[in-house]
Computed example of a mutant assay.
Amino acid sequence: MAIVQIHPNWDKPPAILTHGYSLEMTAKDKPSLQDAAPLIPAETPIAVTFLPGEDAAARVAATVAVRELGFEPMPHFSARRITSEDDFEGYLHAVVREAGVRRCFVVAGDPPEPQGPYFDTMALIATGAFERAGIKAIGIGGHPEGHPEMTVEQCWDVLTRKVAEIEARGMAPLVVTQFGFDPDAFLEWLAELRRRGIDAPVRLGVPGPAGIKRLLSFAARCGVGASASVLRKYGISVANLLGSAGPDKLVDAFAAGIGPQHGRVRLHFYPFGGLRKTVEWIADYERRQGQA
């Protein structure tokens, strides 16, 4: 299948959970990626986000840099931020032509109303543009802690329909979750995903090491649960918000809790503290696990 062509180790359980991780970057992170590149394994999937204030040329350049550095680019497409069919297909064909892109990630985007003809991710997928461009895999979002604009059951219905639509078009679905601090919520969601018959590979979102205030700022912006009890699980005390925090406890909990019943699972890191700091943390974690 297409997902195996891109990631031959998806069906082989990792010796250490961080093996086979993926990363996220913005177009502005291109110099940081070049700096961190020697520490990142070859063919690591790296998503390039679709943010306001970054033009298509900058995103294409970042995607090309990912490929030239020996990694697997996965550009984002934000449906409601795309202004026209030409805007959509022009960007898609540019990243395929210039960076050899084989997989894309599709989100609805933050604007409440679309800036062009596409209201949501299904509208983009339904165009048929991805498979016509030779895309082999489509990433879609998962929300273990729920979505601010949908009920839990609506989230499951939308996710199920997206997976079915992607597969019907001959591509492989990949679910990448929002980041979070609560391993229990993620493991319960993952078990429910499999109970509902969705066997697509999943990447669980993990925040990279960063200042605590910065982590909480991103959590508030993204609607991530950050109650005092959840933060304690992660290793953060609300009485002391100075300093920084890493995902050690979260990743340890995933490693202890994930079993064969959870299907194909890897990690996706959101490097809020910087790409180099995140990949250094991963390398250090793997060294410690190898010595355990």
Results as ranks from 00 to 15, higher is better:
241 L>Q: 07
192 E>N: 07
185 A>L: 13
189 W>S: 11
257 G>M: 01
91 Y>S: 04
273 G>F: 10
202 V>C: 05
74 M>H: 10
70 G>P: 09
190 L>F: 01
179 F>R: 07
239 A>L: 15
291 Q>G: 08
33 L>I: 06
159 L>D: 05
247 P>C: 06
195 R>W: 00
180 G>N: 00
292 A>C: 08
71 F>I: 03
253 A>V: 03
97 R>D: 15
207 P>M: 04
188 E>F: 09
292 A>I: 08
111 P>A: 09
19 H>I: 00
63 T>P: 12
15 A>Y: 10
28 K>N: 14
35 D>E: 15
156 W>G: 07
118 Y>S: 08
270 Y>G: 00
223 G>W: 12
5 Q>L: 12
217 S>T: 13
232 R>C: 07
202 V>Y: 03
120 D>K: 08
110 D>A: 13
9 N>R: 15
275 L>K: 03
152 V>N: 12
284 D>P: 10
79 A>K: 02
28 K>F: 13
205 G>M: 03
28 K>Y: 13
270 Y>C: 03
235 G>C: 03
126 A>I: 11
276 R>F: 05
56 A>I: 14
163 V>H: 05
205 G>Q: 06
174 L>Y: 13
185 A>V: 08
105 F>M: 15
263 G>C: 10
57 A>H: 04
8 P>V: 02
59 R>T: 04
254 F>V: 10
196 R>V: 05
171 M>N: 11
195 R>K: 13
111 P>H: 12
170 G>T: 10
147 H>A: 12
124 L>E: 06
53 G>Y: 00
15 A>L: 12
90 G>N: 02
199 D>C: 08
25 M>T: 09
284 D>K: 14
83 T>D: 06
252 D>V: 04
142 G>N: 01
80 R>A: 05
68 E>I: 06
164 A>E: 15
151 T>Y: 00
